[in-house]
């Protein structure tokens, strides 16, 4: 067992954890924060996406002990117009991928804000990127939605980012 200080949604938690415990399981099983979902436990679906110091990661491949002292934000700590936009645009059906989509989108918007390029960015040398639908789709491709709510998700993100369609 190792002692870990996890800061989640602004609250510090002191936990005694088996070092095998993933950040995802720490949240779900030890802190009761079940809003973050487990879809594959292999980094392949994005359902477990949380923000660490504002950056999106997949919590299933993170060991909790690695993230002591970092600022972790889960869906329970998110209060953002993007959430209402998801409802308006029907950016989900079963809702199981939704927490991950929302956290991922928030991390993604911050990346765009910082000028980070993506695989579909044409002019890499330019410091700013325009958030086209193609950019949104590429950047959100780490979040699977088997219900196929992709159109609604793209709409919600575009609306929230204030980009005209």
């Amino acid at each position: 067992m190792v002692e870990v200080q996890l800061r989640v949604n602004g609250t510090a938690h002191r936990l005694e954890l088996d070092p095998r415990v993933s950040l995802l399981d720490a949240l779900r099983e030890h802190l009761g924060l079940t809003g973050t979902k487990k879809g594959c436990n292999q980094g392949a679906c994005g359902a477990c996406t949380v923000l660490v110091d504002g950056e999106r990661i997949t919590a299933c491949l993170a060991l909790a002990v690695q993230y002591g002292g970092r600022e972790i934000t889960t869906i329970e700590g998110v209060a953002h117009p993007l959430q209402q936009a998801f409802v308006r645009t029907d950016g989900f059906q079963c809702g199981y991928c939704t927490s991950g989509q929302i956290c991922s989108a928030l991390g993604m918007l911050a990346e765009v804000e910082a000028g980070a390029p993506s695989a579909v960015t044409e002019h890499l040398a330019e410091p700013a990127v325009a958030l086209t639908d193609a950019e949104i789709r590429e950047r959100m491709s780490g979040n699977l939605c088997r219900c196929g709510a992709y159109n609604g998700i793209t709409d919600a993100i575009r609306e929230t980012a204030g980009v005209p369609s």
Partner: peptide, 18 residues
């Protein structure tokens, strides 16, 4: 709008393992 919109976008909706 879906009646479960708020619980599903806030992480409140609980699924079988939760």
């Amino acid at each position: 709008d879906r009646v479960d919109g708020t619980v599903k976008t806030s992480g409140e909706a609980r699924y079988a393992a939760e």
